[in-house]
């Protein structure tokens, strides 16, 4: 992800009262203006664009390899006026969304089934630890062998990469049941399904959302990677085409587009998090302001 997606909200929204001035202490933290972080973030992006604009006009980098920002953004604007661009965006989002949805669904089902049964969990732990670190890109040849350049090969990579992110979080979440809460549920006659629904699911939800956030980012990376290398349709493929036809400004424009997509995805999941986890300490601190 790019810089603007950094989690800025959490720190800024809870304004701590400034501590009483102490003698010879380091300068006390300034009380930040509301929305100050957003202003700073925008300033940072503008500064970055400015440097990008200037550097290609100096002898440092040739403009053939790094067209100035204005040129790239103009190309991007041009592209967004074409149907082809939006088809590519749609293909990328479709592969990303479908892959992520399947990965999340499978991770939730397996995570709950295996996580709530200690024997199964112990039985599968070593296998998971072996499979999890395998980089998804190492499966590219295998994916091509099985599915060719079909969207299925992209999906295979995306699902494999995103699944572990979510699955491991769900396992942690399911294991995080408070013993007192569990005893309460049992004492008040909640059966297995009622406990899964009213206790285990809400307990695991913050972990699941974290998993979805990590998984969403990884899924986007893998979607673009698969389109670049396998050549299934989408932004990744467009980048490869632009590169082979010697159009660096288009390459950069499309890269910027994928970056914006990444920021949008992260923002979306964060919004979902705030909505679903209003009760959670990490969110309610923000809500209380």
């Amino acid at each position: 992800m790019t810089a603007p997606s950094a989690p800025a909200g959490a720190a800024s929204a809870a304004p701590a009262a400034p501590p009483p001035p102490a003698k010879k202490s380091p300068p006390r933290p300034r009380r930040r203006l509301p929305g100050g972080d957003a202003l700073l973030g925008t300033g940072g992006v503008l500064a970055f664009l400015l440097i990008w604009e200037i550097v290609p006009r100096t002898p440092l980098v040739s403009a053939d390899y790094l067209p100035p920002a204005s040129e790239v953004l103009a190309t991007l604007a041009e592209r967004t006026a074409t149907a082809k661009f939006w088809t590519a965006v749609g293909d990328t989002l479709a592969a990303w969304g479908l892959g992520l949805a399947i990965a999340v669904g499978a991770a939730v089902l397996l995570g709950f089934a295996i996580g709530t049964v200690p024997v199964l969990r112990a039985y599968t732990a070593s296998t998971v630890e072996f499979l999890r670190p395998i980089p998804s890109v190492a499966l590219i040849p295998l994916a091509i062998l099985i599915y060719g350049t079909d969207i299925a090969s992209t999906l295979m990579l995306v699902i494999y990469a995103a699944f572990w992110q979510v699955y491991v979080q769900v396992l942690y979440g399911v294991a995080d049941i408070d013993p007192v809460a569990d005893q309460t549920a049992r004492a008040y006659g909640l059966g297995r399904w009622a406990r899964i629904r009213h206790l285990i699911w809400p307990t695991a939800l913050p972990y699941l959302i974290t998993g979805v956030r990590l998984g969403a980012a990884v899924a986007l990376i893998l979607t673009i990677t698969a389109q670049l290398t396998i050549g299934s349709p989408g932004l990744g493929q467009e980048i490869a085409v632009a590169q082979s036809s010697g159009a660096p400004d288009v390459v950069y424009a499309l890269i910027v587009a994928t970056g914006i997509l990444g920021v949008a995805v992260n923002t979306g999941v964060r919004a979902l998090e705030r909505r679903v986890l209003r009760w959670h300490p990490s969110v309610r601190g923000e809500a209380a302001v």
Binding site: D178, A181, L205, W279
Partner: peptide
Amino acid sequence: EYGRSLFPWL
């Protein structure tokens, strides 16, 4: 432990 016995999401 009332804090842990009550469900914070409810």
